[in-house]
Design a protein around this nucleic acid. Structure first.
Lengths: 167, 167
DNA sequence: TTTTGATATTTTAGGCATGGATATATCATT
DNA sequence: AATGATATATCCATGCCTAAAATATCAAAA
């Protein structure tokens, strides 16, 4: 455990480092939190269920949409590229956890759905997964969590807006 | 069906879900925000400087530690595995942006440092990078950003503590 | 000294992720 | 119908990332 001394700005040569815009520090802290939680969840899903996080995430999307989802829809919701979804889906199909059905409306598209086994398997994992998340936030009180939830909505709005402008 | 919860009137669906869903939603929103920003930054670093985000991140760590860092230290700070750092470092060495120096104290270890060109190159990119981050948070006022910054400290503490317990 | 255990890094194999290119299907106009 | 633009998904090359095993060094005990 490296104790990153918070006051590393004691350097005489502070240049850009301690001049870091508060926004940058905010972003780096956000990233650190996400990595911390994500790495923990990833390791545990692997250790306890032998599944990868991306596969779990894809199944989670399907469980929320029992009518199934098109590949492109999965791509949007998971915020990853289409080619990526193709690969993860291939794996899950090979494991018998999801199926690709031809879309009756659009012959370009597939509808991806959980198989009964996929649904069963996912529900078991999801229960554990959720309890891990609860554990990870257990050190915060409800007010803090609600505040955080609201602030993140503001981040989402702000970042989406700014990103759209630059496109 | 398992009655591990004392909650009466549980529906047929997972009772844990309806009980603890707020934490899960909080986590998913955090993840969405991070991906949104990270994908934007990644694409822009590539488009404007032809560099990948992991390479930029590694250089950023070195710029903050002019005395250089050991591979393992980089791994810890970047929150990625050692093997990963090996690969990224190899690439940066090939591009002439960093060097591996033998540690005088420990013949197992390397000290990785930015080359003068690496430092020059990084500073230029870092300036742009920082301005992009500022843009992305521009839709939030300072009070919100400060609140968020503090709340994330609480997340970090909470998650670290919980993760440590399970190890 | 030799053994033992911990530490530092690389290597390997497999899977995830992007961006770009391709193939095919659909839609909106002619 | 024919045209061209758009949408859907896949394939490819490259690079990131992890976990586990391999290699080498260090430090301290037996």
């Amino acid at each position: 455990m490296s104790k990153k001394s918070a006051s590393a700005g004691a350097d005489t040569e502070t240049r850009a480092t301690s001049e870091h815009a508060p926004d940058l520090r905010l972003w780096l802290r956000t990233l650190a939190c996400t990595n911390l939680i994500e790495n923990h969840i990833r390791a545990r899903l692997r250790a306890e269920f032998g599944i990868t996080l991306p596969r779990f995430d894809l199944m989670a999307q399907l469980e929320r949409s029992p009518q199934g989802l098109k590949m492109g829809e999965l791509s949007k919701r998971m915020m990853v590229t289409g080619g990526n979804v193709t690969g993860i889906t291939d794996q899950l199909v090979a494991e018998g956890l999801v199926v690709r059905e031809d879309s009756p409306k659009d012959r370009r598209a597939y509808i991806v759905k959980l198989t009964p086994e996929g649904r069963r398997s996912f529900r078991k994992m999801a229960e554990a997964h959720e309890s891990w998340i609860v554990e990870l936030y257990a050190g915060m009180d409800e007010k803090q969590r609600n505040q955080l939830y609201e602030l993140l909505a503001a981040v989402k709005t702000s970042a989406s807006t700014a990103a759209a402008k630059k496109k």
